[in-house]
């Protein structure tokens, strides 16, 4: 079952902006992305000034699946869902 978090991440990207590595800054842990399963854009609760984001569903080389997103306005990355 997925656990919902909005955890700040550091993400390494290709020059086209696609994520290739996820790093948990406080845990000093990184995982390489094996495949981007899907991606889409979300607007969110714009009436509450929620920012637009690009969302990625990724699977890492350790076979874990994550939903991460980048806030387009700031460039910051967050982890929002972990699939066990």
């Amino acid at each position: 079952m997925p656990r919902r978090t909005d955890y700040p991440l550091q993400v390494t990207c290709t020059r086209h902006g696609l994520p290739v590595k996820l790093t948990w800054p406080t845990k000093r842990r990184s995982e390489k992305i094996a495949e981007i399963l899907d991606q889409w854009r979300e607007v969110g609760a714009w009436w509450d000034a929620e920012p637009e984001r690009q969302v990625y569903l990724v699977v890492t080389t350790t076979q874990k699946s994550y939903e991460v997103y980048q806030v387009l306005q700031t460039g910051s990355w967050y982890l929002t869902r972990v699939f066990d």
Binding site: R41, E42, V43, A45, W46, E52
Partner: peptide, 28 residues
Amino acid sequence: FPLHDLLTCVRTLTTLPDLHPERRLNAE
């Protein structure tokens, strides 16, 4: 997009916080 989203709520008789399959996910 925000106006279109609002009109979708009018059309589907929902309010902004409600989820509805007609509501678009993004402004694309």
